[in-house]
Design a protein around this nucleic acid. Structure first.
Lengths: 128, 128
DNA sequence: TATTCATATGAACAAATATTCATATGAATA
DNA sequence: TATTCATATGAATATTTGTTCATATGAATA
């Protein structure tokens, strides 16, 4: 057992989480080696967080059917323009939607095909 | 314009969201016809909500590498056993993980291949 | 260039949620 | 069957997050 491992185990004991003997070292060591950056997993959860709100899911769904403007979305969802606009900002920041301007109107659409794939996989999962 | 449409538009005006003229009726009507149940979209957002937390994403990630017990996960994530256990319950309820018992130990693993697909698509998206 | 109007934004409030601490549960085994 | 120990759970707290209201912005056009 390396010094690093000892330190790790001591930390667990300090935290009161797990005792020594029943940790499966082979598994822990193996997986530890392939863990992505903390930051990458954080980004990943931030990305999925965007899908985890019913308003945003509805927006993504309607945009999967057709490009449309803020007011079309507000109408379909029966919600206020401001709420939609706030959520569109979140979707833009996470690059889930893009937009084009046409006169005074801004048309939004899904950014890329990953979004469709993820929505479809989610639909499959909950339909099982 | 049908009575139903008029009612809808009146509602928007009441809500102060959108004025009358700039709604694109063809789009709204077309998409309205294919909207899934409110409940289905709600379930979908609840499903994705589970991916939207860094602790749960880390759990899903480590389980994508190997089946393992609660304490292995707590060790890898450097978190308390209780926190992991609470999150595993969420993951179980949403059928993202399953488990088997072996003596006093409970081994968890990912429930099905959708989970892997969704994780992979998410990784691709944030890596672009 | 003054006005209009679709969209965006800031602040405030309400609601949801993750972690910790303390403790319960319940399967294995002494 | 009494004990052990991995895991689960309830309550409390702190933080995050979504919506509303009021207002700003800024592109089109009169």
């Amino acid at each position: 057992m390396t010094a690093e491992e000892k330190a790790r185990i001591q930390q667990e004991v300090d935290e009161g989480s797990c005792e020594f003997m029943h940790i499966h070292e082979e598994i822990v060591d193996k997986v530890e080696k392939v863990m992505p950056d903390e930051q990458q997993l954080l980004d990943l959860s931030e990305f999925f967080k965007v899908f985890g709100d019913s308003t945003r899911i509805k927006i993504l769904y309607v945009l999967s059917q057709s490009e449309m403007c803020v007011c079309d979305i507000a109408t379909l969802l029966q919600m206020g323009q401001s709420a939609i606009s706030h959520q569109l900002r979140v979707l833009k920041q996470m690059r889930l939607v893009t937009f084009r301007r046409d006169g005074k109107t801004v048309f939004y659409k899904l950014a890329d095909s990953h979004i469709q794939t993820i929505l479809a996989q989610g639909m499959e999962h909950i339909s099982e």
